[in-house]
């Protein structure tokens, strides 16, 4: 298991480098000019100097190498400096945003907590709703509850967040005036009142994001439970006189959770993608909104780094899913 984990971890490094290269090359053919937004009055010589300062004059492989070094060598040092108060990375070049001239990682570090809060809460809420739904739907297969939940999850799965988001805002914020319709990023939790406000402004985005999670995971939960409920060991457990609760919630559930846990791990990055749309709907100042802003402003370093960050999340989730599968299921042995 340990060798498998190590090999899997080592394999993801070249994968990430290739992904970084793909993202870099794709963006490099960009016909857009980062200097396009500057005023016309700037003379060509100054323009050329500014291009030089942005690192645009150098050949492709040099820029890729510089970006990789800055991302994997300088940025970790900055992090170490920040945590331990050392000064490893002083005066070393960092990846700079073309928009704000601030380090890209600094910009991302400011936006990431918003996304993590909303997305993380939504994912947990979604899972907590999905599991009981799937379990009960499978236990009473083809019952009214099962058919109703099939229909509801199908509808929830089919409604895109850019439709449910505005509709929910319309009903709950505009008509009923229950929740604020814009997420206030600068809001700080200091006392009970500000905490309730924070909860209130998170309700709608979390609701929109968790609908998709619930719909997907409850389907997996249901089919995994169905697979196990018809197994022989269930009949044996019942024949031994175990209570129905123990049979379903201990024996069947534990076996059914194996594929579901991997689906949960695999689905985590996808919800970050979904957050791009939800952040747009609720005006949350997270990394999704940052990405859209950077794309529209042609801020290549920020787009590079954010896209790469999404890729890292996906690769990590795949890794986690593989390892969890091996850990949870004793029938799987990695040679």
């Amino acid at each position: 298991m340990l060798t498998f984990a190590l090999r899997r971890l080592l394999l993801s490094v070249p994968m990430l480098i290739v992904i970084a290269l793909v993202i870099f090359l794709l963006l490099d053919v960009a016909p857009g000019d980062p200097m396009g937004n500057l005023p016309q009055t700037i003379s060509p010589e100054v323009r050329a100097q500014m291009r030089e300062a942005l690192g645009l004059g150098e050949p492709l492989h040099v820029r890729f190498w510089k970006w990789m070094v800055q991302l994997f060598w300088v940025e970790p040092q900055v992090l170490i400096d920040h945590v331990f108060g050392t000064s490893l990375a002083v005066d070393k070049p960092r990846v700079l945003s073309w928009q704000s001239r601030a380090p890209v990682m600094f910009e991302i570090a400011q936006a990431l907590p918003q996304t993590l809060w909303v997305v993380g809460t939504a994912y947990v809420v979604g899972i907590l709703m999905a599991l009981p739904l799937g379990i009960f739907a499978a236990y009473r297969q083809y019952s009214v509850f099962d058919n109703a939940s099939t229909f509801v999850t199908m509808v929830g799965y089919s409604l895109p967040p850019f439709l449910t988001g505005p509709l929910i805002i319309f009903v709950f914020s505009v008509q009923l005036d229950l929740f604020p319709f814009i997420y206030e990023t600068s809001h700080r939790v200091t006392d009970w009142e500000s905490f309730t406000y924070q909860v209130k402004q998170m309700v709608l985005p979390v609701l929109v994001l968790s609908v998709q999670t619930t719909a997907q995971i409850s389907r997996y939960m249901r089919s995994a439970m169905l697979d196990n409920l018809s197994q022989d060991y269930v009949r044996t457990a019942r024949a031994k006189g175990m209570s129905e609760w123990v049979v379903v919630m201990v024996h069947v559930l534990r076996n059914s959770m194996i594929p579901v846990v991997t689906v949960i791990a695999l689905g985590a990055p996808a919800i970050f993608g979904g957050a791009i749309i939800t952040e747009q709907v609720f005006a949350i100042n997270g990394i999704g909104a940052q990405l859209i802003g950077a794309i529209k402003a042609n801020d290549l370093p920020l787009v590079h780094t954010l896209t790469f960050l999404f890729a890292v999340l996906i690769v990590l989730a795949n890794l986690l899913a593989d390892l969890l599968y091996g850990l949870l299921d004793p029938r799987i042995r990695y040679g």
Binding site: M15, I23, L26, A30, P31, G32, P269, K296, T307, A311
Partner: peptide
């Protein structure tokens, strides 16, 4: 296929559309 599955698709879609739209 694994490589494509590991790519962040929505961000990349956005980037592709932005890059090639005008061309």
């Amino acid at each position: 296929t694994d490589l494509f599955l590991s790519l962040p698709l929505l961000p990349l879609l956005l980037v592709i559309v932005m890059l090639f739209r005008e061309a």
